[in-house]
Amino acid sequence: MASQGTKRSYEQMETDGERQNATEIRASVGKMIDGIGRFYIQMCTELKLSDYEGRLIQNSLTIERMVLSAFDERRNKYLEEHPSAGKDPKKTGGPIYKRVDRKWMRELVLYDKEEIRRIWRQANNGDDATAGLTHMMIWHSNLNDTTYQRTRALVRTGMDPRMCSLMQGSTLPRRSGAAGAAVKGVGTMVMELIRMIKRGINDRNFWRGENGRKTRSAYERMCNILKGKFQTAAQRAMMDQVRESRNPGNAEIEDLIFLARSALILRGSVAHKSCLPACVYGPAVASGYDFEKEGYSLVGIDPFKLLQNSQVYSLIRPNENPAHKSQLVWMACNSAAFEDLRVLSFIRGTKVSPRGKLSTRGVQIASNENMDAMESSTLELRSRYWAIRTRSGGNTNQQRASAGQISVQPAFSVQRNLPFDKPTIMAAFTGNTEGRTSDMRAEIIRMMEGAKPEEMSFQGRGVFELSDERAANPIVPSFDMSNEGSYFFGDNAEEYDN
């Protein structure tokens, strides 16, 4: 993207840094990872977990959730003011799984939030270390993106479920800051804005008074975040219109849905970061690795190297396929839920299948599930090659597409044709070009129609051997075009429920 120079890199967003050079960025990201790792080690000690239990991804998720809940100030305040039966607002906890007599047992633990905050700050040299908290939120978000298709949420806001490739980060909490905003897809931002506008339509006082002023500035800020994701002048001009509207209503909703559809071809720039579970960072720190000293990046080879040398386990339900569970977590670790499966298959070195073909449910185990038949197995999170994460949407291309997802959002900077089903997408653009945004709409449609099938995206960008740390010898991959490109292809993934 041309304006790259004016933006802070995501590592800076990730670490609240002012302008830093590459070495400083690597050190501050490393410091953040160190903090998460030290916190995780301490929690495993508190909970008396064995090494194996500490490497269980379900335990990692519970521990991450506990610290996120302990620092969720708004919710904590709300819980104190609106006490609900049987919930102690000062405590947080969740299921911890232990191996007892050759069987997995679930144990519900409860801790004072104050105590968890103390352990977290102690692991982070006394700081609140917001960057580390956001990092864990993005890992949870990436896992949700890989596990669930947001059909219901899309339909509720009037969008087409086939636009799911635009929904990265749709389950990120509001408090995820600049680093969170960077990884949100165009569809996620559109959905947040539509929800806001709908509230304004239904509630006369939404934009009024002292609160209304705050609401208005939040609305304009979200519009600017979305505008910054678009790469064409016409899309940005249309966002200006939406932002400046005196009284946002149905016309703005129409414009936003139009823009979301246009992003299936004229893709937005959305950041991709490899955020790993805390149970990967903990053992690495415990083994003596100093992330701050060595430096770390979320968008280069580092996460690949770390996963190459990590042992992570997962509980497996009786009829689940461990290899499929591994694929789910591998995609989440690489922030690749909406990437082209052919690119992923090449990088991973084994075939990556669409969601609907995987015999696996989510990673988390519900409290009512029976533990008797639970097994555990090693997650295979290694890769054959590594590639640089991208934040450009890439230019655009036609490809055989599917009944489910009709476009992709690249996660890796790797040369390819970008699949999208042009006739299906263009069919949504018939007729409606009147109104105050008509010239911009016409211009956007013209650009979409001009998108050429034979153009290559990320020209000359390749993948790298894991021994090639400096990215000196790019390998331009070859793809098996007979395979499906979309992950949520004609899909039956479970729906995400809060």
Rank of each mutant, 00 (worst) to 15 (best):
A22T: 15
A263T: 04
A27Y: 03
I138S: 01
R199Q: 01
Q122C: 01
N370Q: 00
L418Y: 10
D16M: 10
S345Q: 00
S367L: 14
T396N: 02
G349I: 10
L418T: 00
S478F: 05
G212K: 08
F458R: 10
N432L: 13
Y52W: 12
T171K: 09
R150C: 10
L379A: 04
L108T: 08
E14H: 04
E455N: 14
V476F: 12
G362F: 11
G404R: 03
K305D: 13
E494D: 08
K452W: 05
L466K: 12
L381S: 04
G126R: 05
K198Q: 01
D72N: 14
P318K: 00
R267H: 13
E320D: 05
A85Q: 00
D88L: 12
S413V: 03
E495Q: 07
Q459H: 02
N397H: 12
P477M: 11
T215K: 02
G450T: 01
V414R: 04
S141A: 09
N125F: 01
P322Q: 04
G30V: 05
S165D: 01
F71W: 08
M331L: 03
R243L: 01
S377W: 15
M32K: 04
V242N: 09
C333L: 08
K90G: 15
Y111M: 15
R213H: 09
G35E: 09
Y52H: 06
R400T: 01
Y111I: 15
V29E: 02
A179W: 10
N417L: 00
A366K: 10
E455D: 08
S457R: 12
V408Q: 07
R65C: 07
P283M: 00
D290L: 06
N202L: 01
S50A: 02
G37D: 10
V242F: 02
G180A: 13
Y313W: 07
F346Y: 04
M426F: 00
D203K: 06
I33D: 10
I365W: 08
F412D: 12
R400C: 07
N250F: 02
N224Y: 03
E220L: 02
N125Q: 00
K351E: 07
E254T: 12
E73G: 04
T23S: 05
T378D: 09
A22G: 08
M1K: 14
W139C: 03
Q327C: 12
E107C: 12
F488D: 11
A233W: 12
N224T: 00
R213F: 13
G5P: 03
E455I: 13
M1V: 05
A428Y: 06
E46V: 12
T147E: 10
T360W: 10
G185D: 13
T146Q: 12
F230C: 05
F291N: 08
H82V: 00
A336P: 01
G288F: 10
S402H: 06
G158S: 09
I444K: 09
V312S: 06
R65F: 02
V299W: 10
Y52M: 09
M222K: 14
M137D: 10
S478R: 00
P318E: 01
K184H: 07
F346S: 05
L344Q: 08
I301M: 15
G228M: 06
R38M: 10
M43N: 00
S359D: 07
M239I: 05
A493G: 04
K227Y: 11
R208F: 12
N432D: 06
G200S: 04
F489P: 10
C223P: 12
D112W: 13
F479V: 00
R106D: 10
I36T: 03
E210Y: 12
E252K: 08
G394A: 07
P477K: 11
G356D: 02
V270R: 10
M13S: 13
K103P: 04
M105Q: 05
H140L: 07
R384P: 05
Q12S: 00
T171E: 10
E449T: 02
S269K: 10
R246N: 02
F258L: 07
G295P: 10
